[in-house]
Structures are given as C-alpha cells and as structure tokens.
C-alpha cells in the first residue's frame, strides 16, 4: 500500500472547556474517498476544517503528503507558519462549503479563474481556457457570464466545485456539500462528486447522504462526541455496524 496522503495523529481541539476533537487518529490514502458521518456536534466539520488550518488544533498533528499543516516543527516545538506559507499549503487543498460561498461580485468564469490567476500566477488567457474546460465538465459551459445569485443552489455548488478544481488540488474537502440544497438538486451535485471520485481524486466528505457514502466512498468514518467511533468500508460501517452508537445514528437517518 502506498504512503497515506493525509495523516491525523492524536489530533485534539477544544473551544474553551468544550473538547470537540479527542485524540483523533486517521489516515487517508491517495485516491481514496472517505466520508465522515455522525450526529451534528460530533466534530466532523471541525476535523475537516483543521486539514487546511481554517481551525487551529490544540494537540497532535495533521500532515498532508508528509508536510505538517500550519506549523513548522523544530525538535518538539511547532511554530505556527506565517500567513503566506499557510496560504501556500491551502492552495493545493481545496474546500467546498455547505453554503457554496461563491464570490457574489464575480461572474461564474471570474469565480473560477480568480485563485489560479491571483494565487498561482497563471496567465489569464490560460486560466480562462482551463476554467472553460472544467465548467464544461460540471455541465455549466453555458453560464460563464452569469452571476452566482441567478443560479440554482445545485448550479452554485457545481461552480464551487469547479472553482476548487481550477486549483488542481491534490485533495478536496467537502463540508456538507448538499445540505443546503433543495432535495431535487442534490443529485446533480452528487453526480459531479461521483465523477471526481471515479477520476481518482482524493476526497474527504462530511455528509448526511448515506447512499453517497455507501456507493461512492471507499471508507466511512462514524464520529460521535469528538471521537471516531468506527471506521471501515461502507459494507461494514453502514451495513453491519459493530457499535451501538453507530446503529442508533443509522436507524435515525435512514
């Protein structure tokens, strides 16, 4: 088996007295699609947001491709990196948000080329060509000049995925990508994600879509109370959970 891409080593985090992550250990292999499921408040979104240092961790470490996220290690000390270096790490770890967070003052095309041009320094003409290709891939080639507010939720989320892909990421973090969508629009977003998974993209997906977790993900991690209760292939965790808490949760969502 190849080296894991993401390694969580005893990751802990608290908000004041509230421990949201308790010594999480987890590995994600390149090309793997891992879904994080669990009740709200279980810490799954927080765990995801720690991977690109949108949240600081209080203990343990997260590495992506062997690189410590957010810190520079000297002996046993970890110094927080200056903003520019953190930004550089984030540039290759894309994130898709529950509320899309598209840039409202930019057209679809401008949204997709913004970071490649501004962060990676790709020439604009080149970025536009690339962006058109990606938007075609997510089925929005006819919406280049449209502003986000004129699009449906499903279309907006597909633009957000295109924006993430434009950075040629090695890893994409999905934070409940379909939770803000009307039920009939969930499918079009999941289809795009399914295609990405089949294309070999490494993905971590916080989701409530059990069917997606079952059909697309290589592994499912069930979290509760800041811990990973169980983790394994969907055929085990979703079909034959060993823990009572997992069973209780699954009986509620299905």
């Amino acid at each position: 088996m190849s080296e894991p891409m993401v390694v969580f080593d005893r990751v802990s985090k608290s908000y004041g007295a509230l421990e949201v992550l308790k010594e999480i250990n987890l590995e994600v292999a390149p090309g793997e699609v891992l879904s994080l499921i669990g009740p709200s408040g279980s810490g799954k979104s927080t765990l995801l947001r720690c991977v690109n240092h949108l949240e600081r961790i209080d203990g343990g470490s997260i590495t992506v491709d062997g690189e410590l996220i957010g810190y520079r290690q000297v002996g046993n000390l970890a110094y927080e990196l200056p903003e520019k270096l953190i930004a550089k790490q984030r540039a290759r770890i894309a994130m898709v948000f529950q509320n899309f967070n598209l840039f409202g003052h930019m057209t679809v095309l401008e949204n997709v080329i913004e970071a490649p041009v501004q962060v990676l320094g790709v020439p604009k003409a080149h970025a536009i060509e690339h962006a058109k290709g990606i938007l075609d891939q997510v089925g929005l080639a006819d919406k280049l000049e449209t502003y986000p507010r004129m699009l449906s939720g499903g279309q907006q989320q597909r633009v957000a995925i295109a924006r993430a892909l434009a950075m040629k990421p090695k890893l994409i973090l999905f934070d409940e990508p379909t939770s803000a969508l009307d039920p009939e629009l969930v499918g079009e977003v999941l289809d795009v994600m399914r295609a990405l998974a089949e294309g070999g993209m490494t993905m971590m997906v916080v989701t409530h879509e059990m069917a997606f977790a079952r059909d697309v993900c290589n592994r499912v991690a069930f979290m509760d109370g800041g811990k990973i209760v169980e983790c394994g292939p969907p055929s085990e965790v979703l079909a034959n959970p060993t823990h009572e808490r997992t069973r209780t949760f699954l009986s509620k969502v299905n």
Binding site: N52, L54, F97, F103, G104, L120, R163
Partner: peptide
Amino acid sequence: DSGQRQAAKSLGMTNGKSLWRIVIPQ
C-alpha cells in the same frame, strides 16, 4: 458574509488579497 473570507482563505489567498479582491468589492 464571513464565508467569503473563508472561501478566499481556502483558495490560498492571504488576508490582504482576500480583503482587496473579495471583501472590499462586496
């Protein structure tokens, strides 16, 4: 919305760039 800054950060923008390109225009 604070999500705009988070999206800018997650795309590798520095605070200054996200302020200038994303927050101020909106």
